[in-house]
């Protein structure tokens, strides 16, 4: 038997008895980032494919909310900072080894792009829209010449943003649950799936909903595969990662994870989408709403559980 105790009574707030440095802000920020990334990816992709008229929600309507999502995400990140007055220091350094740094920079680039994209499309959605000032009108006219490169930049940056939401966590070797490179692709796919779900909810065209239900189904399948893969990796890894996976295989997070994230957030929406494709009568809002809920919960569970996993010495 071996017992290790801190006998001098260390009780540093948020560190002891167990790390709790990140609360709701970071998982909410990761969710919003992933959602925005998903929407912008589809907008860029279908625009480049020349399908703007076929998929107007994906290309025009849904991206209008992304500047709001990104700004809200940054507000959450800001709220999480403990030394807020020095926030600007994030933008006086570029540190490629620090995901927090290049993630903040990615957001800095994708935020104006998403705003430009929204501005380019707002007139076709609201015919009565008037920019009032001539210089704005001219600027938009000028930007319209570059809509294709903008779409490309948006698509590439959205993939970086989506992956970043996972890498932010996976870069921490100190937290065995996070320390798996699967987390990057997993969060990217999950973010794209929530993006597709948001498009389904906003869409009024049956055909568009149908296409995105198919896309979502594929993404959910990949996500399930990656989740299984992640746990297989943990089981075959070092003791600390085996311990980390125990939290989900019998430990405290078993029920919330498998019932709510995997069951309600992935398997049931997938089943509903299959039923809808076979023309069974199901309210189309249910599946995407569950996907969004599952995506949000997934990030919360990963953020909290990850902080509970640690090295023992």
């Amino acid at each position: 038997m071996r017992e290790e105790l801190i006998v001098s009574g260390r009780m540093n707030p948020h560190i002891d008895p167990q790390l709790q440095i990140w609360e709701w802000h970071i998982p909410a920020y990761l969710f919003l980032g992933g959602l925005a990334a998903g929407i912008l990816f589809f907008a860029g992709y279908f625009f480049i494919k020349g399908k703007s008229e076929e998929y107007p929600t994906a290309v025009k309507l849904a991206p209008i909310i992304t500047p709001v999502l990104i700004v809200l995400g940054l507000v959450f990140l800001f709220l999480d900072l403990k030394h807020k007055l020095y926030f600007w220091r994030l933008y006086t350094a570029i540190k490629l080894e620090s995901p927090m740094s290049w993630g903040a920079w990615t957001l800095m680039f994708i935020m104006p792009l998403s705003g430009i994209w929204a501005a380019l499309n707002i007139e076709s959605l609201f015919p009565k829209w008037d920019w009032k000032f001539d210089f704005v009108k001219n600027a938009i006219k000028w930007l319209r010449n570059y809509q294709k490169p903008i779409a490309w930049a948006m698509m590439i940056l959205s993939v970086i943003l989506g992956i970043y939401t996972g890498i932010l966590l996976s870069a921490f070797n100190a937290r065995p649950l996070w320390n798996t490179s699967i987390l990057g692709p997993l969060f990217l796919v999950s973010g794209m799936s929530t993006g597709a779900a948001a498009i389904i909810i906003l869409s009024k065209s049956k055909k568009e909903r149908h296409t995105f239900a198919q896309i979502d189904l594929l993404l959910i399948a990949i996500e399930l595969f990656l989740i299984v893969h992640m746990f297989m990796g943990f089981r075959a890894s070092s003791q600390v990662q085996i311990d980390a996976s125990e939290m989900f295989l019998g430990g405290d997070f078993t029920a919330p994870f498998w019932v709510f994230v995997v069951g309600l957030g992935l398997v049931i929406p997938a089943a509903l989408e299959v039923m809808e494709m076979r023309n069974k009568k199901v309210p189309y809002m249910v599946a995407p709403a569950l996907v969004l809920m599952g995506g949000l919960l997934f990030r919360f569970i990963m953020a909290y559980a990850g902080q509970m996993s640690r090295w023992l010495y």
Binding site: H14, L81, K82, R89, F172, A174, R175, W311
Partner: peptide
């Protein structure tokens, strides 16, 4: 330091 907590989470 902006107090982001990344370093705290990174220290084993």
């Amino acid at each position: 330091c902006i107090g982001c907590g990344a370093c705290i989470a990174s220290c084993p």
